[in-house]
């Protein structure tokens, strides 16, 4: 009886163990207070110096490309002027050859040039946006920067249209004024680009400094900027 009683009273049950907490995947969230450690805003896949060099290279290369395209277009519009001066853009061809090629393909060249101009623009500015941490972060964080970017984009597209239209329609009769559509595009594009550049410059000088400072500065600077 005693044995039965003692068995009946024996304690059996559940006791806890502190659960092992599964390791969480690193959160993609942005922690402000931890960002002020060394160059936190830099894209880790690009060392700072090489990314700067790359941006410079793209900018210089793009500028030269645009300059060459501009010269080609200009020479096509004023081929008689250049032929008089025996100006050779392409070695191995004389002025009359160039004139012949350009006259017969002016529309095509204009459209291609427009595409190249726009591509160069994208290459330069998008690359800067992506590789330059300050501008990239500003563009990501500030809606006004995106607006400025949009102004620039639409402006360049409009200018490209304008140039293409002007060249295409006015070349065969050099004295013919460019069509109204082209003037409209050109004017709109110019205004948009000017507004975009001014806005971008204003925002960069207003916010860029504080962000640049925050990159190498304290967490408070950074938090202040984003607050």
């Amino acid at each position: 009886m005693n044995i039965k009683k003692s068995l009946h009273n024996r304690i059996k049950g559940w006791l806890p163990k502190t659960p092992s907490v599964p390791k969480q995947p690193s959160a993609p969230s942005f922690k402000r207070t931890e960002i002020s450690n060394e160059k936190p805003l830099m894209d880790k896949s690009f060392p700072a110096e090489s990314s700067t060099n790359l941006v410079n290279g793209i900018m210089i290369g793009g500028s030269i490309a645009i300059l060459l395209i501009g010269l080609s277009l200009w020479s096509s519009l004023n081929s008689s002027y250049w032929s008089q001066r025996n100006f050779l853009i392409f070695s191995g061809l004389d002025a009359s050859d160039i004139e012949h090629v350009l006259i017969n393909n002016v529309g095509y060249i204009a459209v291609c040039a427009g595409a190249v101009v726009y591509s160069s623009y994208l290459l330069i500015f998008v690359s800067i946006n992506q590789l330059n941490p300050t501008i990239r972060n500003l563009t990501n964080k500030k809606i006004s920067f995106r607006l400025a970017n949009s102004f620039l984009n639409v402006g360049v597209i409009a200018i490209t249209f304008s140039v293409s239209e002007t060249v295409y329609y006015s070349y065969p009769l050099a004295s013919t004024p460019p069509p109204l559509l082209s003037i409209g595009f050109g004017t709109t594009g110019t205004i948009l680009i000017v507004v975009g550049v001014l806005l971008m410059a204003y925002l960069y000088f207003k916010f860029g400094k504080s962000l640049t400072k925050a990159q190498g500065g304290s967490a408070n600077d950074f938090a202040k900027f984003y607050s």
């Binding site: 304690i11 059996k12 049950g13 559940w14 006791l15 806890p16 163990k17 502190t18 659960p19």
Partner: peptide, 21 residues
């Protein structure tokens, strides 16, 4: 084993004990 949750204390894992004393 049993895993439980309470709003104030969170999660806990419980194992059956034959001799909890």
């Amino acid at each position: 084993a049993i895993i439980t949750y309470t709003t104030s204390h969170g999660l806990k894992v419980w194992y059956w004990h034959d001799h909890p004393e």
